[in-house]
Each structure stands twice: as C-alpha cells, then as structure tokens.
C-alpha cells in the first residue's frame, strides 16, 4: 500500500497556543481515514494545514509523494485535493449564486463541459435545478452543505478532505450523501480524510481512525476494534458511551 497523505509530527501554533502538537497521520491511497475527538482538539486544523490554510511551525506534510512547504498550494494541488469545510456558510461566497460557485472552479482549471457537470453535481447531492440560481442565504443549512459537497466533487479530485460533511443534514439526506461519497470513492478510487463527531458515521465510512485530544493523536485503531470495544484510551471509551444518547441523571 502507498501512503498518499502523510502528516508527520505536525505542529500549528497561534500566538502561544498549540492547536496541533506533533500530530502524525498516514492515509493510504484509496482508503477512507477518520478523525474523531474532542471539540477544539485540532481536527479542522489538521485538514486546514494540509490545504495550506494553517500556519505550520514544525513537521512535514506530503501529498502524493510531494512534500508541501509553507502555505502555497499550486493549481495541481487543488485539482487533486478538495476540501469540504465544517462551516458551509463561511466557505461559500455570500454574493454568488450556486451556479457561479460551481462554474468558478471549472473556469480556473480550464475544464469545459460545464453545463453537464453542474447539472450532474447538483443532481448527485439531491438538489434540483431549481436551486441553481439561488444565493447561499436563500438555502437552508443542509442545502448549503450540499452545495459545498457538489463544488468539491465537480473537479473530480483524487483526495477529499471532509470536515463534518453531514453534521448539518437530516438522517435521510445524510444517508444519500454518505452513499454518494462511498460510491464516488469506489468508482474513482478516491482517498478520504474525514472528520466527524458521529461514531456511527465514522465507523460506517472509515476503515481506520485516529482519536485526537489537545492537539495530539492519542489513539489509532480500526473501526472493527472500536466496534468490538478493543480500546486503549479512556477518552475513546467515553466517546463510545456518550454515543448511546442522553441519559437524565435521576434525581
């Protein structure tokens, strides 16, 4: 197996706060790798660092064998790697229609056949053509997230960085989007690095995962281990317990 995304001893520091503290993750070509962990533990920061959006102070990032330096990412990088952000409102341009946001990446990369690709992308994420000329504020939260996913898929990248891609979606649309993601991964041999706080989603989508806490990777395990309770860290075990739902402390 070849490692396609390699993050080694990566640190990201803001002022004097360590958002990532020597974190390492190796993702093999064609696999789907999950990141779970506490809020604020650095999951988004890790994805953003790969995309050149976080200030790396130490460590190395390698994507498809190329070492990436600083924050610059070239066109070839974005052709190969696309990211779906946790906060779709922030990642969509507020004054551009859905259509414009889908046309733009195609134009930047000089890809023709726009009309067909746009209709296909919208259809894949379950948005009819009625949504094509709307602005982000005219969409519900889940509809915005689906536009963000359509935009990431339209360039047919080989690696997708997915930050909570379905946490804004109801279960029925979530199932459709997860099925779509699995299907494109199979058809196009994609690699996923996926953040989710929903262990049901992570174990469904990913073969292996890393658990993060305080900027560090505290445990690496397979989904099968997690499901079977073969867990080393207390924190991971707490996550499993909490996944069972809310329990009112009886008075």
């Amino acid at each position: 197996m070849t490692v396609t995304v390699s993050v080694e001893n990566l640190s990201v520091v803001y002022d004097d706060f360590r958002a990532l503290d020597a974190a390492s993750v190796q993702v093999e070509a064609g696999e789907s790798f999950g990141l779970v962990g506490e809020s604020g533990s650095g999951k988004s920061t890790l994805l953003r660092a790969i995309a050149g959006l976080a200030p790396v102070s130490e460590g190395a990032i390698r994507v498809q064998g190329r070492e990436l330096h600083g924050a610059r990412r070239d066109k070839a990088f974005y052709r190969a790697v696309q990211m779906v952000f946790q906060d779709p409102y922030g990642s969509l341009h507020p004054r551009q229609t859905v259509d414009r946001q889908l046309v733009e990446p195609l134009a930047i990369h000089g890809i023709g056949d726009g009309e067909r690709r746009i209709l296909k992308a919208l259809d894949e994420v379950g948005l009819g053509s009625g949504f094509r000329f709307r602005y982000p504020h005219q969409l519900s939260g889940g509809q915005r997230q689906r536009v963000a996913i359509a935009r990431a898929l339209i360039l047919e990248p080989s690696i997708l960085l997915l930050d909570e891609p379905t946490s804004a979606l109801d279960a029925s649309v979530q199932a459709e989007v997860l099925n779509l993601l699995e299907q494109v991964r199979r058809d196009r041999k994609l690699t996923f690095l996926m953040v989710s706080h929903d262990l049901g989603v992570v174990t469904h989508m990913c073969e292996r995962l890393a658990v993060m806490q305080g900027g560090r990777v505290v445990e690496r395990l397979t989904s099968a281990d997690l499901v079977a309770g073969r867990i080393a860290e207390d924190y991971t075990r707490n996550l499993m317990v909490a996944s069972k739902g809310f329990r009112r402390k009886s008075a």
Binding site: S172, A175, L178, T203, H204, L226, M240
Partner: peptide, 23 residues
Amino acid sequence: PYTQGLLNCMPVIGADRHPLPVL
C-alpha cells in the same frame, strides 16, 4: 413513513449496511 424511514437510514455503530437504506 417519512419518520419511519428516517429512523431506518441512520448509520449505526456495529451495523454493516452498504449502501445505507434511503427514503
């Protein structure tokens, strides 16, 4: 049927259903 469908299409830890049922 919408509510029933919703309950059925959630990924559940330990269940191996690919693809997930959809509405």
